[in-house]
Simulated assay, not measured.
Amino acid sequence: MTAVHPLHSICPYFAMFPPGFVERYVLAFTEPGDVVFDPFSGRGTTVFESLLLNRRAYGLDINPVAACVSGAKADPPTVAALLRRIAQLREQFSDMGVAQVPNTEFFEACFAPSTLKQIVFLRNSLNWTSSKVDRFIAAMALGCLHGESHKSLNCFSNRMPRTISTKPDYSVRWWAANGYEAPVRDVFDILAAQVKFRFARGVPSISGEARLGDVRNATAMFRKLQGAVQLVVTSPPYLDTTDYGEDQWLRLWFLGGAERPKGRIFADARHGTSQAYWAFLTAAWTGIAGLLAPNCTIVIRIGGMSFAPADLEEGVYTSLRNGLGCNSLEIVQPLNVSEIRNRQTNVFRPGTKGKRVEYDFVLRAA
Rank of each mutant, 00 (worst) to 15 (best):
V35M: 06
W175P: 08
A293K: 14
L153K: 09
L329P: 07
C144S: 12
V332F: 10
R198V: 08
S114W: 00
G303N: 02
R270T: 05
I164W: 02
G44C: 07
F307C: 03
A74N: 06
P102K: 01
C110Q: 04
K196H: 13
F37A: 06
V184S: 14
L82C: 08
M16W: 09
P32T: 09
T115R: 10
Y170I: 12
D311Q: 15
A310Q: 14
N336C: 06
G227C: 11
F107S: 01
E314I: 00
E313H: 14
D34E: 11
G20I: 04
G315C: 09
A267N: 08
A182E: 07
A269N: 12
A182S: 15
V35L: 10
V187N: 03
C11E: 02
G208T: 10
P236W: 06
R43T: 05
P168K: 07
D95Y: 08
W175M: 13
L122V: 07
A80C: 00
N127F: 11
I331D: 04
R90S: 12
A15M: 09
S94T: 10
V184Y: 13
V215M: 03
I190R: 01
N346C: 01
K353H: 00
E330N: 13
A74D: 01
L312N: 01
W285R: 03
M1L: 12
V172D: 02
P12N: 11
D38F: 09
R251Y: 00
A3G: 09
G263N: 10
G325E: 11
N178A: 14
E105H: 12
T166D: 05
R123K: 15
L122A: 07
E49P: 01
N127T: 09
S114E: 14
A139F: 09
N295W: 05
G208L: 11
R264N: 15
A81V: 02
C110E: 01
V187W: 02
I86C: 06
V184W: 10
R343H: 03
K353T: 05
L292V: 04
C110K: 11
T234F: 04
V69S: 03
F188Y: 14
R223I: 01
S165L: 08
L281A: 05
F188L: 14
R341W: 00
C110N: 05
A293L: 11
R90E: 14
Q100A: 15
D95A: 15
L82T: 08
A366Y: 06
N124R: 13
A289D: 07
T219V: 08
M96E: 13
F21W: 14
L363K: 07
P261I: 04
L89Y: 11
F361Y: 15
I265K: 08
L239S: 06
S152T: 00
S235C: 10
L126M: 12
G227N: 10
P19C: 11
K224A: 13
T30G: 07
G179C: 08
I119Q: 03
